[in-house]
């Protein structure tokens, strides 16, 4: 059964890729161009606003590319069961495979996108050392975090279609509430508290340590990320288990 799952995921991912890039001339390049356009805007608009941040392009990139991954993954996952409704209703394969295949597709896109970005970050003065490999365990935890949230949204969205729309709407708000284009140092002390409840504060702290500052990820922060991701993942699995039997009659 394990190898069956592997094959099914392989073909679902294959399908995702074919569907996604079939009709665009630039195809795969888009996953690279999209964050690049954002970067350009940020550099033009904000680098003057935050003169205290050294090497602003590298600073932004080390948060931005991971945000783009998160935002794409959760948006895709929030509608994954609806998009696959006809298959879910007529094929007896485990429903969570559709969600997992979506995560794998997004992870692959991001990993491939990471290559040009690494080059770009090297150009902006990133230290190229073995230290950068810390990004791999980071992606495992971060991927699990995005998957958890996406699975919760996707499951609820089957019953209440507003969930995906709502998520699409508040997505940009979370972006601006997270320290991506700015550093938490510019936040007045009495508001800093708020950021302590934002998971991205911790995640981007780690990516900045790895990619921007060129140091090891902080142990305390890393453990905290692993802890709340695990809690989140368990909660997501619980929600999925509670709801997935009702998918068929509501799709």
């Amino acid at each position: 059964m394990e190898s069956t799952r592997r094959y099914l995921i392989y073909y679902l991912v294959y399908k995702n890729f074919q569907l996604k890039y079939k009709h665009s001339a630039l195809g795969f390049l888009w996953s690279f161009l999209h964050p690049l356009l954002y970067l350009l805007i940020f550099v033009l608009v904000f680098s003057k606003a935050f003169p205290s941040i050294a090497n602003y392009p590298l600073f932004v990139l080390s948060g931005l590319i991971f945000w783009v991954f998160f935002s794409n993954t959760t948006n895709q996952l929030s509608s994954v069961f609806i998009r696959n409704a006809s298959l879910i209703k007529s094929l007896n394969i485990p429903v969570n495979l559709y969600a997992f295949a979506e995560l794998v597709s997004e992870l692959m896109t991001s990993l491939l996108g990471l290559i040009p970005f690494m080059l770009l970050m090297g150009f902006f003065g990133m230290n190229v050392t073995w230290n950068l490999l810390w990004i791999i365990p980071f992606l495992v935890v971060y991927g699990a975090f995005a998957y958890s949230l996406g699975l919760i949204l996707g499951s609820l969205n089957v019953f209440l279609r507003d969930v995906a729309i709502l998520w699409n709407t508040i997505n940009p708000a979370i972006f601006y509430l997270s320290p991506i284009a700015y550093s938490i140092d510019i936040i007045p002390a009495r508001y800093k508290m708020v950021f302590l409840f934002n998971p991205f504060y911790y995640f981007f702290k780690i990516t900045r340590e790895i990619l921007y500052e060129g140091t090891f990820p902080d142990l305390h922060t890393s453990l905290l990320c692993i802890l709340f991701t695990s809690v989140f993942l368990l909660f997501a699995i619980w929600i999925f288990r509670k709801t997935h039997n009702g998918f068929i009659s509501n799709l």
């Binding site: 399908k15 074919q18 569907l19 006809s86 298959l87 209703k89 007529s90 094929l91 007896n92 394969i93």
Partner: peptide, 18 residues
């Protein structure tokens, strides 16, 4: 795994072969 209703899972954007 038996296939129910024929034609489900056909993705219109993909070619017949795919």
């Amino acid at each position: 795994l038996p296939l129910l209703a024929l034609g489900v899972g056909i993705e219109l954007e993909l070619t017949g072969m795919e």
